[in-house]
Design a binder for these strands. Structure first.
Length: 526
RNA sequence: GCCCCUGUAGCUCAGUGGAUAGAGCACCGGUUUCCUAAACCGGAAGUCGUAAGUUCGAAUCUUACCAGGGGUACCA
């Protein structure tokens, strides 16, 4: 519907002023100002040397389109009310489980990388946020016609991995009654003991790769359970073994002028603001070099646009990563980095202390056990990525009206049960009869809210923020509950039973689709 | 010191250059012989951290400052 209004406005402007302009179509602040609103008159003012007020008046006076009920200028804004018939036609189109999906294919292959946690321990809550976010963003982008692959990068080589091996070995010795010392900054926690017990049975030749293999399979199970899907898991070790790291250094050296500098026995990269070590004096590359290699590999595999969801601890590397890729022929705008801020767990007012070293941290599995998958995912997705969030465990598991996830799910369950009852009584739930009789405020508000789902999905895909969907669903549910409370459906006015059931059915589809894009279940009964 | 994030109602947060800044919770009052009350309706609640700047227009962009959090390894 927004697109239709945009076309109408654009056409009207090109007819009157012979100008092609990008116009923004929004919803006016109050319903009685109309369905849609645009600011084009302000934007045109400079071009055509007239006041916005005059322009708005001219446009509204000459606008001609049979979809429009009226168009009015208000202080330079142009407000538009569409004909009810248009809304009803859209409502009919919305009776479709994939309503909201874009039918236009975007010819761009996107690679979305997220979580990519070290394979040295169970995934914890920060990864849960990234996992929820990435998985949902991928679904939203796909719904809008993007070709998206999700990838997980495994840091299966390096000091942390060695440390994992040593930590397991030390635990093995301890369990066998031999003198053992936990390496300093080594890993501890229950999982190390379990891995050690398993190692005793299997006698691996290499404790590090044994540990990585086991931890990775734990992480995969957790992510499966959390309904998070990856198309591919990429091993850093393999990237190194294929010589891709050396290739990066070679290629960067042949850039003129070369950004690489030999200093203090190490090889440094000269960034814009600072220098950073790429090859240590012992000859091993730092984290960032294989990361550059990995990103190049993504481009080589045919992905045109890369999105990385990173934790705030990786911010420091972004400039060098982008700069290196740019020097090697991939413009900075082809890599989009989104920071997913940390999560602080709370129980009411109390902060839950987390420390990886001591092994005291809440894992995704513990989180799922405590609050459930739906509440966990919905809570993470109610916040935009850039804000450090507090996650209140008490509220998330509270089964009450204070908990937003239940509010939306309850809406779905309520409608499902209503539709079941209607079918039992022999009513059709997708009959298009008498839709034009819907005219109460509660009904019209609902009819006009449904097409907004499309707009919300477009916007969420554009700014890469699933929280817009969560907020929309809360809004839609509220409007539905208000409608439900305000009118009697089965047993109400006879000629309105079918249209109200139809409307309810469409709302149910939209809620179910929205929840599925967030990875949250839509229960039929609660 | 430098870098990043945040600052909007009592609390948690929407608002990604537009109109009188919104919602949930909490608080106060009301609604059920009736399809799910996990619901609905009404009320009260604001120096958008501060100050300048850009703009026809700023919570939104720029700069400086204040406050809170995080980072600042030849770890990842």
């Amino acid at each position: 519907m927004r697109k239709k209004v945009e076309q109408i406005i654009k056409k009207s402007i090109s007819d009157q002023f012979a100008i092609d302009i990008d116009c923004e179509i929004t919803h006016p602040p109050s319903e009685d100002l109309g369905d849609y609103s645009t600011n084009v008159a302000f934007l045109l003012a400079r071009e055509v040397h007239k006041s916005p007020k005059e322009i708005a008046e001219e446009i509204t006076a000459n606008i001609k389109d049979n979809k429009i009920e009226w168009a009015k200028p208000v202080n330079g804004f142009i407000n538009i009310m569409l004909k009810k018939e248009e809304w009803l036609n859209e409502l009919k189109r919305a009776n479709n489980p994939n309503y909201g999906d874009s039918d236009k294919k975007k010819n761009k292959r996107i690679l979305l990388e997220f979580v990519s946690a070290n394979p040295t321990g169970p995934l914890h809550v920060a990864s849960a946020r990234a996992a929820s976010f990435g998985d949902s963003l991928a679904s939203i982008l796909k719904s809008q016609g993007f070709d998206v692959d999700c990838e997980y990068y495994i840091d299966d080589i390096g000091k942390q991995v060695e440390l994992l091996g040593k930590s397991i070995l030390s635990k093995v010795k301890e369990l066998q009654g031999e003198p053992a010392e936990l390496p300093c900054d080594g890993y501890s926690g229950e999982y190390i003991e379990e891995l050690a017990k398993k190692a005793i049975k299997e006698c691996p030749s290499d404790y590090s790769s044994f540990g990585v293999k086991e931890v990775l399979s734990m992480q995969k199970n957790t992510l499966d359970r959390f309904r998070v899907h990856f198309d591919k898991w990429v091993s850093e070790k393999e990237i190194r073994e294929k010589g891709m790291v050396n290739k990066v250094i070679e290629d960067l050296s042949s850039v003129k002028p070369s950004p690489l500098i030999q200093k203090d026995g190490a090889l440094w990269f000269a960034g814009e603001k600072r220098e950073r070590v790429f090859i240590r004096s012992d000859g091993t590359p730092t984290y960032i070099v294989p990361d550059i290699a990995y990103h190049l590999n993504k481009f080589e595999r045919g992905f045109e646009h890369l999105i990385d969801l990173l934790g705030p601890d990786h911010i420091d590397h972004i400039p060098e990563l982008k700069k290196s890729l740019a020097l090697l022929g991939h413009p900075e705008e082809n890599l989009e980095v989104k920071i997913i801020q940390w999560v602080t767990l709370k129980r009411g007012d109390q902060t839950v202390k987390m420390s990886k070293r001591s092994g005291e941290f809440i894992t995704i599995d513990e989180l799922i056990d405590e609050v459930g998958i739906d509440a966990a995912r919905f809570f993470f997705l109610m916040r935009k990525a850039s804000i450090p969030m507090d996650f209140d465990l008490d509220l998330a598991k509270e089964q009450s009206e204070r908990n937003p996830v239940f509010y939306v799910q309850y809406g779905h369950a309520r409608i499902s049960s209503l539709l079941d009852l209607a079918r039992e009584k022999g009513y059709s739930t997708d009959s298009q009869n008498n839709l034009a009789l819907l005219e109460k405020d509660e009904e019209l508000r609902l009819i006009k809210k449904i097409p907004e789902f499309k707009e919300v999905l477009e916007d969420a895909a554009k700014i890469r923020e699933p929280h817009l969907v969560a907020y929309y669903l809360l809004d839609l549910s509220k409007i539905y509950h208000n409608f439900y409370q305000g009118v009697r459906i089965i047993g109400g006015e006879a000629e309105l039973v079918l249209p109200r059931l139809f409307l309810s059915n469409v709302v149910r589809n939209v809620i179910a689709r929205g929840l599925s894009l967030l990875g949250v279940s839509a229960p039929v009964r609660m």
